[in-house]
Amino acid sequence: MTTKALARGALGLLAAGAVLTAGAAIGSDDGTRIHWGPYKVGDKRSGYTYAGAQTRAMQDDDFQNPAFLWLERGADIWETAAGEAGKACADCHGEAEEALAGVATRYPIHDEARGKLMNIEQRINWCREEQMGAAPFKWESEDLLGITAFVKNQSKGMPVAVSIDGPARPFWEQGKAFYEQRRGQLDMACTHCHVDHAGTMIRAETLSQGQVNGFPTYRLKWQTLGSLHRRFRGCNKNIRAEPYAYGSDEYVNLELYTTWRSNGLPIETPSVRK
């Protein structure tokens, strides 16, 4: 952990160095003159590349990244027995680092039993209800955010790789339709900001590509960790559109579509954003 943190710190310094010597630094075709390393894959740019230097530094340093408080909570949950079965996650899955490496890169998945998609949060709650005999965690609770971030963090640095073949395909189609449909009083679709105008300014905010590889994310505006579905709801309300519920089919389908857009970018959980 400490070695990892030091290594990340060193990477952060390197990134800062790249900014300072921008004039002579490695060329980049996004107008920033910063070599983004793993945060830019082809034309795909993580939200990291749209964040300010201070925000990026906060993400790069595990001791500064406030989300690590949630990771500790998640690690505790992993080890703590709960429910009628008297079991902890670790009792079935073993060491998280081994059991969970790469798992989050594949979610949401198609769940045959339910005949629809299942994201990480839903998988965790499925385990709690079906395997542990425990009450599901509430959406956006510290517990669900903590264990979700912990699970995803075990895949940190691995490329997102959701499948949209086979039974997942129609749900991806629905997510795509959501992404492209105008909604709300402002009559805008996701694609208007995050595809057509990514990189331009809305007042003091830079529109990003809306890549989702860093969720749950510690958002400075929220002053807490938050889920992707919270971000969806915020985006919808910004354009004065009625949001959907956390964990709704609509948002999980949209999650598959947006995660597919992020295929190839590394998992950054827990990221820090403005």
């Binding site: 449909q181 105008r182 909604r183 709300g184 009083q185 009559d187 919808n236 309300k237 004065r240 559109a241 009625e242 949001p243």
Partner: peptide, 8 residues
């Protein structure tokens, strides 16, 4: 318009 936020 589609799904205008409640109140608007």
């Amino acid at each position: 318009l589609h799904r205008v936020l409640s109140g608007f």
